[in-house]
């Protein structure tokens, strides 16, 4: 899995991944895992900077 770098996954979790990859319409468990990880990473990468978070909250008139 994942080329030369292997990641160990608990057996029960792997069984679940196999089961739900099929249910969710992924072509393979690998594709499912890849998508799930990409989604999580995107969340972290897209996380706004603290300055942006503050700016967004400060748009609220109640806080200057």
């Amino acid at each position: 899995m994942f080329g030369g770098d292997r990641i160990k996954i608990d057996k029960d979790l792997l069984e679940k991944i196999k089961k739900y990859a099929k249910v969710a319409g992924y072509s393979s468990p690998e594709e499912f895992v890849k998508h799930a990880l990409e989604k999580e990473l995107a969340l972290l990468e897209d996380a706004d900077s603290e300055e942006e978070i503050k700016k967004r909250l400060q748009g609220l008139g109640y806080i200057s």
Partner: peptide, 14 residues
Amino acid sequence: DFIHRDPKTMIPYL
């Protein structure tokens, strides 16, 4: 409140 926080990240949000 107008503002909540995610306790797992401690980041506030509307």
